[in-house]
Write a protein that binds this DNA or RNA. Structure first.
Length: 462
RNA sequence: GUGAUUGUAGUUCAGUUGGUUAGAAUGCCUGAUUGUGGUUCAGGAGGUCGCGGGUUCGAGUCCCGUCUUUCACCCCA
């Protein structure tokens, strides 16, 4: 029998260095959210299973992490539990066996919160939420079973200002993180609906979306093959062909799209909305350099009804999207509150981390730890050295003293490994003269200075 | 859920058609240097070969199961 502990599939530990880097990402995003007027919200890790099922499609339901009820071993529950188990084995949910599940995303819990607090909330309601979510997916590159989402959503307004602000937030966040090469892909569900109408393929919406969403991944020919396989007529595919060959500036592509869906009223409406959004984003200071209209962007989540967003980084092995979102007209409808429109964006911190790691984008400050290590010479001297430690900290300097009076070699190599830039040596000589030895561990130079001078130097070098 | 793939020292990996006591690099500890790290040199510790079963005189090596890793599909952050 092995006693070696292991992690559950698809989960990870984050050590001190990784935590510093992750915190840097989260803080950057949080600051952007707050700057745009979003307020924080946290919801429980657990939700009632009935809140989550049916919101993510059949595939999504399969990926929920369900929690086994307690008390199943109680003899008086036994019959119920066995009956429930029989149901679950047949793929049905049964609250006598599982009535809770881990949250799958942040949007549905948010919708639940809005419905439960509809009378207290002032609309439009802008909230951000940064918490882990869980999916019972098979892990692979950029996919984990536990990962963080950073969501910002606005509910209670149809204004396209929100969409424009989302574009600005994406630009600010990725700009501040130093990710320069990325694309914000933009599309509109109504344009896609218009497309379905225009080619006369009503009733095959989802088949169409799934197929054309793969265009940049598998190419035109394979998409056409897949469409044929899914039973689209040659005529319909013929009508789609301009979609595969879209080129030019965002504006030009939008104009082309407008022609393609000209026979459809909803399609037209979608194109117009995107045009308005882009203009608004521009007047908010967006260069639109990173924004691209992508008629083949579909996104899986079934609740989107308007604009949809997806962000991908370039020049990196991480090809999956690092951010995504869109407008949903009726998310709270399933909880009995119809007519509340919302739009939101979600940042995938774990993938952003992978991209930044891959491109080496973490600034040195983002991992800053202790600034100065006090060398521990001798137990006898500690009463005189400890006050120095306190004094450094009172000035806001990140300082620590090596806890044991071991060999200096060991203490210095500890500082070296922890990437501490300075070591402060206070031994008998220093205490006699009042001039302490400050060593810069990067350059190797060492100076005798008064405590005031040391504090000044450390404060200047932060 | 479907199809592949991986597992040997803290870490990254060698290990031949099955054959004595399973190796390297790096990291770790000690010393050269009893008040000075990152370089160098010398020495040392560290492994139930993922786990369980099977074949065999003999298994890290072959077979079965299981868990795990990574990847593609599906889907998705």
């Amino acid at each position: 029998m092995s006693n070696k502990p292991t992690l559950p599939k698809g989960t990870r530990d984050f050590g001190p260095q990784q935590m510093a880097q992750r915190t840097y990402i989260l803080d950057t995003i949080r600051t952007v959210f707050q700057k745009f007027g979003f307020q924080p919200l946290e919801t429980p890790s657990l939700e009632n299973l009935s809140v989550l099922t049916g919101k993510y499609g059949d595939e999504g339901d399969q990926l929920l992490f369900k929690i086994l009820n307690n008390g199943l071993d109680d003899p008086k529950n036994r019959d119920k539990a066995e009956q429930a188990f029989a149901n679950v084995v047949q793929g049905k949910n049964d609250s006598n066996l599982t009535e809770r599940a881990l949250r799958y995303d942040l949007t549905v819990p948010f919708a639940r919160y809005v419905v439960m607090n509809q009378h207290e909330i002032t609309f439009p309601f802008k909230r951000y939420q940064i918490q882990p979510v869980w999916r019972a997916d098979r892990p692979q590159k950029g996919r984990y079973r536990e990962f963080y989402q950073c969501d910002a959503d606005v509910v209670g307004t149809d204004s396209l200002l929100c969409e424009a602000e989302i574009i600005r937030m994406l630009e600010e966040a990725f700009g501040q993180l130093g990710i320069e090469k990325y694309t914000i892909n933009l599309n509109h569900r109504q344009i896609l609906n218009g497309l379905v109408e225009a080619i006369g393929a009503q009733g095959q919406e989802s088949d169409l979306l799934v197929a054309i969403d793969k265009l940049d991944k598998i190419g035109k020919d394979k998409v056409i093959a897949e469409l044929q396989e899914r039973g689209f007529s040659d005529e319909a595919i013929q009508k789609l062909s301009p979609v595969f060959d879209l080129q030019g500036s965002t504006q030009e592509m939008l104009d082309t799209a407008e022609r393609i869906v000209s026979s459809s009223e909803v399609g037209q409406q979608g194109v117009n909305e995107l045009k308005v959004i882009l203009k608004m984003a521009q007047s908010m200071g967006s260069s639109l350099d990173h924004v691209r209209f992508d008629l083949t962007l579909a996104r899986g989540l079934s609740y989107y009804t308007g604009t949809i967003f997806e962000v991908k980084a370039q020049d990196t092995a991480i090809t999956s999207s690092i951010s995504g979102g869109g407008r949903y007209d009726n998310l709270t409808g399933v909880f009995g509150l119809p007519g509340v429109s919302g739009v939101g964006i979600s940042f995938g911190v774990d993938r952003i981390y992978d991209v930044m790691e891959d491109l080496n984008l973490f600034p040195e400050e983002s991992t800053a730890g202790t600034q100065v290590l006090l060398i521990n010479f001798d137990k006898e001297l500690q009463p005189q050295v400890i006050p120095v430690l306190a004094q450094l900290r009172s000035k806001g300097i990140r300082a620590e003293m090596y806890p044991d009076a071991v060999k200096l070699k060991k203490q210095f190599s500890y500082a070296d490994k922890k990437n501490i830039p300075y070591a402060l040596v206070i031994g008998t000589n220093e205490l006699e003269s009042g001039q302490y030895s400050l060593k810069n561990l990067k350059s190797g130079e060492q100076q005798s200075l008064s405590l005031e001078a040391i504090i000044e130097r450390l404060l200047a070098d932060r």
